[in-house]
Design a protein around this nucleic acid. Structure first.
Length: 502
RNA sequence: GGCGACGUAGCUCAGCUGGUAAGAGCGCUCGACUCAUAAUCGAGAGGUCGAGAGUUCAAGUCUCUCCGUCGCUACCA
């Protein structure tokens, strides 16, 4: 049995939850659910990032205090994750007292270790980016290259983090841990950033007060990014509960999109090293969802809400199609049409239909009582292979590959039925053997597929007449062939995943 | 400009350190079946693995050049 601490990024509250956030969160959730099946001790964290000038100004524009604004917008993420059946163990908000305490404790350690110094910073600043730009970066003289909005001139006394001192230690980390970042392409990107050299970072602001004050100088607050990153430590008790922190921290896995590689894989590990915290986290980076389909390209990713997808495909349908169709790593095309095709093919036709035909035949020919499988079933080896490949893929944080491996077993079982035509058989040993095999596959698939389709797996489990829940099974034992013991009341129901029209 | 990724059947993509792998799923055509959600199963068509050159006994698989697409270069998953 292992232990794993999984995190999504904390999402910036000025954003509205969209399918990009959902992609990261659903992937993390599925991995968390897989590890729970393995019997691993799992802590799954998500949350919201709530400080910074952008939030402060948005709040002002809306006539709210920053915390009122953050309360409202943070809740939208919580609601979205609830809707998507996300099984996070904790939801952190950077405005919580526990986080302020943790940030101050961690930064104080870095300060005490001599890695922070005071200096003056003068430059052009984009409020939307909350970042300084050099003149070269600007377009049209004074416009932010990202937001195309005018930048502002700022002069600040800032505290700086001596990031430059950690270039070599970070390179050493990469050398020592070949799997610290997956997939490999992103590992190389991070290494590339490192090799370009590291400059010290401005980490505090005096221009705003919506943030965490520096413990040694309360005229400053931490720049939102540096406070935000620390959430991962806060949530497992940094500064408050050393025992708990020691329990989880060595097992930290951060999942995230490629855009925040620099902050997460360069700055954050450097901060940890500066604070004397090791080992460093493991990272799993994915690409962007690119809008392809007609229905979505018109609106843009930001306007595709998880709720819309759930309306279209159901919670499990959306989860499954998203995980299966967009591999974790490269950018991938995302479209309503592709999700629809995936849903119909894999959930309606392949899995849902198999469940339906099996339960129907058991009703008609076996008196509604599910027989047990054959010990030497032809499906046995296929099921064992499916488990091994499924498990290996989840271990690599490759949900699409994992589901592909699981679903291959479902396809094999449809083929098996076709070959033996149980609908032509009279009640008896031969029929029982075939139907028992099919029921056993469904039992296994309900478990292996549950990280993607938790609700559907539970319902399938119930229809098979099984006790308990597929979510409470323990792998790898539960995937072993022959555990559908037979004599169970099999229930037929409405199609679990109804076929959808475009 | 710098750094990087990618370009394999109509579509989405697998193909690790080079050697019977040119593959999967979808789509399409034909056929079978009828338990099942117009679902299922089988067969087939379809690719000179972006172009060119090179290394090698052997190259989607390594090197170089070119063409094309895209990303990052302190906002967003």
């Amino acid at each position: 049995m292992g232990r794993i601490y999984l995190t999504t990024p904390i999402y910036y509250v000025n954003d509205v939850p969209h399918v990009g956030h959902a992609f990261t969160t659903i992937n993390t959730d599925a991995v968390a659910r897989w590890h729970r099946l393995l019997g691993d001790e799992v802590h799954f964290l998500t949350g919201t990032d709530e400080h910074g000038l952008k939030v402060q100004r948005s709040a002002e524009e809306l006539g709210r205090t920053p915390i009122e604004h953050a309360d409202i917008t943070s809740a939208r993420f919580g609601e979205a994750w609830e809707l998507l059946n996300i099984s996070n163990d904790d939801f952190i908000r950077t405005t919580e007292p526990r986080h302020h305490d943790s940030v101050q404790a961690l930064m104080q350690r870095i300060y005490d270790n001599g890695h922070i110094y005071l200096d003056t910073y003068e430059g052009t600043y984009c409020v939307s980016c909350e970042a300084y730009y050099s003149d070269d970066d600007l377009i049209d003289g004074d416009h932010c290259p990202v937001h195309k909005r005018p930048v502002e001139h700022m002069v600040e006394e800032n505290y700086f983090f001596r990031l430059s001192a950690f270039e070599q230690p970070l390179l050493d980390w990469f050398a020592a841990f070949p799997d610290n970042v997956t997939p490999e392409g992103y590992r190389n990107e991070a290494l590339g950033l490192l090799r370009q050299g590291l400059d010290d970072l401005s980490i505090s602001r005096t221009s705003i007060d919506w943030g965490v004050p520096l413990p040694w100088d309360d005229a400053h607050v931490f720049y939102v990014w540096y406070d935000a990153l620390i959430n991962y430590a806060t949530a497992v008790g940094f500064g408050a509960d050393p025992e708990r922190f020691a329990h989880w921290w060595p097992h930290t896995h951060h999942l995230m999109a490629k855009d925040i590689i620099r902050f997460h894989i360069i700055y954050w590990p450097a901060m940890l090293l500066a604070a004397g915290i090791e080992p460093l986290p493991t990272y799993h980076v994915h690409g962007y969802l690119l809008l392809g389909g007609e229905k979505m390209s018109k609106t843009g990713l930001n306007n595709v809400s998880p709720a819309d997808m759930v309306d279209a495909f159901g919670v499990d349908g959306f989860r499954y199609a998203l995980l299966r169709d967009n591999s974790f790593g490269p950018d991938s095309d995302f479209s309503y049409e592709a999700l629809l095709a995936r849903y119909n093919t894999d959930l309606a036709n392949t899995f849902g239909n198999l469940l339906q035909r099996v339960t129907t035949i058991v009703q008609k020919s076996c008196g509604g009582v599910g027989p047990k499988p054959q010990e030497a079933s032809p499906l046995r080896a296929l099921a064992e292979t499916a488990y091994e490949e499924t498990a290996a893929a989840w271990e690599r944080v490759q949900p699409a590959q994992a589901l592909d491996a699981t679903w291959r077993l479902v396809r094999d079982t449809n083929e098996y039925l076709q070959e033996h035509e149980p609908w032509k058989l009279e009640p008896g040993k031969e029929l029982d053997a075939i139907m028992g095999d099919a029921l056993e596959v469904l039992r296994i698939v309900a478990i292996l597929g549950s990280p993607a389709i938790p609700a559907g797996a539970v319902e399938a489990w119930r229809r098979l007449g099984l006790e308990g829940s597929p979510l409470d099974q323990r792998l790898p034992a539960a995937a072993g062939w022959g555990q559908y013991r037979g004599g169970l009341d099999v229930v037929k129901g409405d199609p679990l995943f109804p076929r959808l029209k475009g």
